[in-house]
Amino acid sequence: MSKEDMIKEAVEEAKAKAAKEAEEQAARTDEQSEAEEQTEEAEEMEDASEDDEADASEDAEEPAAEEEAADDDKEKSGKEKKLFGRKNKKDKKDEKIEELTDRLTRQMAEFDNFRKRTEKEKSQMYEIGAKDIIEKILPVVDNFERGLAAVPEEDKANPFAEGMEKIYKQLMTTLEEIGVKPIEAVGNEFNPDYHNAVMHVEDEEFGENTVAEEFQKGYTYRESVVRHSMVKVAN
């Protein structure tokens, strides 16, 4: 074979090899394009599937959310009922506190009533005792008055008579300071609450049912009568 033939044959082989490589490259390109298209289609289908699943999930979540809201309302209502029930039901400590408070209030009221009653009884006992003492002193006052009335006018300047007069005045001042007062009788209308009528006389000089004379002076102690006036009533 000549050199030219060998070159020609080599060129033909090179062309054939290049053509084959070009065909293979085109085939690979077509396969790659087809694969890319399939991949894009698969991705689009997957995205569509995901969108459908999301919509389905949203649709499924709506009833679940409603059920959850209903459960929350029930739970809240139950808590409110429990809370309201606890408000109505008193605790044992609160009941004990109320019981002790009520007992203390009652005891304080009873003690206050007892104190008032005791003070009233003490006051009454004091007045009874004071009236008893005054009744025993009044005869002494009567004797002072009788003795001073029996002193002649010329002897009233006697130191003894003056001393007795001062003692009498001091005694009457002391009685007046503690609430003892003589009852007005002569010339006043007869009052059975203060006067004790032992005699009756018809005398035109006095009005009807008027005290004409006083035999024994009467006294009051704090508006209550210790001794009635012994009097003679006219008309």
Rank of each mutant, 00 (worst) to 15 (best):
S2W: 07
S2P: 01
D5T: 15
M6S: 14
E9S: 14
V11K: 14
V11E: 11
E13F: 08
A18M: 11
A19T: 06
K20Y: 04
A22F: 08
A27S: 12
D30L: 12
D30H: 08
E31P: 00
Q32F: 01
T39V: 04
E40D: 07
S49R: 15
E53W: 05
A54F: 02
A54E: 09
P63F: 05
E66C: 02
E68S: 09
E68N: 07
E75I: 08
K76S: 06
G78P: 00
K79S: 12
F84N: 15
F84Q: 15
K87G: 10
K92M: 12
K96E: 05
K96N: 01
I97P: 01
E98C: 02
L100W: 00
L104Q: 13
T105E: 15
Q107Y: 10
M108T: 11
E110I: 03
E110C: 03
N113V: 08
N113T: 10
N113M: 11
N113Y: 07
F114G: 04
F114W: 13
R117L: 05
K120E: 11
K120L: 12
Q124F: 02
E127H: 15
E127R: 13
E127I: 12
E127P: 01
G129V: 09
A130T: 10
D132A: 14
D132V: 03
E135P: 00
K136F: 01
I137C: 03
L138D: 02
D142V: 07
D142H: 09
E145N: 14
R146Y: 03
G147L: 12
G147M: 13
A150M: 07
A150E: 03
A150N: 09
A150C: 01
V151L: 06
P152F: 03
E154F: 04
E154S: 10
A157D: 07
A157G: 06
E162T: 07
E165M: 07
K169F: 02
K169W: 01
L171C: 05
T173W: 05
T173Y: 08
T174H: 05
T174I: 09
T174Y: 03
L175C: 04
E177Q: 15
I183A: 00
I183L: 08
A185F: 00
V186S: 06
G187I: 01
E189Y: 06
N191K: 13
D193E: 15
D193A: 13
Y194I: 02
H195T: 09
N196P: 00
N196S: 15
V201D: 11
D203C: 02
E204Q: 11
V211I: 15
F215L: 15
G218W: 01
G218K: 03
T220F: 01
Y221R: 15
S224T: 15
H228P: 07
S229L: 00
K232W: 00
K232A: 04
V233S: 02
V233G: 00
N235L: 03
N235T: 04
